[in-house]
Amino acid sequence: MNYHTTLLEDAIEQFYFSLNIHHPQELKMKAIAELLEIPIHFVPISSRTYNGEIIIDSRLFPELQWEHFGHELCHVLLHYGNQILNINILFLQYQEWKANNFMLHFCVPTFMLQKYNITNINEGIPFIMEEFKVTQEMAEIRLNHFRNQLQISKLQQQLNALQQK
C-alpha cells in the first residue's frame, strides 16, 4: 500500500535529509541545534524560545526535553514575534497547535517510522518510546496518527480503484 504523506511529513523528511539525518539514533537535539546554528540552553525554567534561541527546562527528563525541543524549534523556524505581547489569542492558540503537530512529526518522523512493521499498537508504543526516545503519551498519539494516515491511504486507493472501473 502506498502511504500518502502530508506536506508536513514531506517537509520534515526533506529537512532531516538536508541535515544528513536518516535514522532514529541520529535524532540528537544538541547536534541538530548546532547544525542549524540555533543556540540551546538548559535552565530550570519552562521551555520557550527567546530572540531566536531555544531554552529547554533542565528539570525535565530527556524524553520530554526532546519533545519540548521539537515544539520550540517550530516556533524558531516557522513563527515570528513575541507571542505574549503582540498576538491575538486565537492566533496564539493556532501557533501552539501547529508547534505541537510539528513536534509529533519532528520527534517521530514518518519516513523513519515507515521502515518498521508495527502491527500491534500494544507492542508499537513501547517500541516507539525506545527507538525514538519519546514519552508514552507521545508514542501513543503518534502511532494513532500514523495508523489513521494508513487508513486514509487505504481508503484513497480503494476509491481510486473504483473510479478506474
Rank of each mutant, 00 (worst) to 15 (best):
F61D: 12
L73V: 00
I54Y: 01
E53M: 14
V76R: 05
N51T: 04
Q93D: 12
T135D: 03
L85Q: 12
I87Y: 14
K28Y: 02
N88E: 14
H22Q: 03
M112Y: 07
P44Q: 11
L73P: 04
F146E: 05
Q95R: 11
I32K: 08
F91L: 12
I40L: 11
I38P: 00
R147I: 14
L60Q: 13
Y80I: 08
N51Y: 09
L36F: 04
K28V: 05
R48Y: 03
Q95M: 12
G124K: 04
E34S: 10
L92E: 08
F91K: 15
I125E: 06
C74I: 04
H145V: 04
K30Y: 01
T110A: 10
E96W: 07
N51W: 06
I55G: 01
E96M: 12
I32E: 02
M29K: 07
L113C: 00
P39H: 00
L60F: 09
W66P: 02
I118C: 12
F102N: 06
K28R: 06
F42W: 03
S47E: 00
G52C: 04
G52Y: 12
I89L: 10
K115R: 14
N88K: 12
K30L: 11
L78Y: 14
L113A: 02
I38F: 00
E67P: 09
P24Q: 06
M138K: 11
C107L: 02
T119S: 07
K133E: 15
C74T: 07
I40H: 03
G124C: 05
E137V: 11
I54G: 04
M138A: 14
H71S: 01
W97P: 00
W66F: 12
H75S: 03
I40E: 00
E140G: 10
T135P: 11
P39D: 08
K98C: 13
N120D: 15
N88D: 15
F111H: 09
A31G: 00
R142A: 11
R142L: 09
N88C: 10
E131K: 15
N82Y: 07
F106G: 03
I125V: 15
L64E: 10
H41S: 07
R147W: 03
P39F: 02
L113P: 06
H71C: 07
H75M: 09
Y50L: 08
F146W: 15
P62S: 02
H68K: 10
I32P: 02
F127C: 08
L104S: 04
L113V: 01
P44G: 10
Q136G: 09
A99W: 05
E63N: 11
F69W: 10
H79F: 05
V108Y: 00
F102G: 09
E140Q: 15
G124A: 10
D57N: 15
H23A: 06
N117Y: 09
M112P: 08
N82E: 10
L73E: 01
E72G: 00
N100V: 10
G70K: 03
S46T: 11
Y50N: 02
H105T: 11
L90T: 15
L64N: 04
H68E: 04
C74E: 05
F69H: 02
C74H: 15
L35A: 14
I55E: 03
R59G: 03
H145Q: 15
G70H: 06
I54P: 00
L92N: 13
S58Q: 13
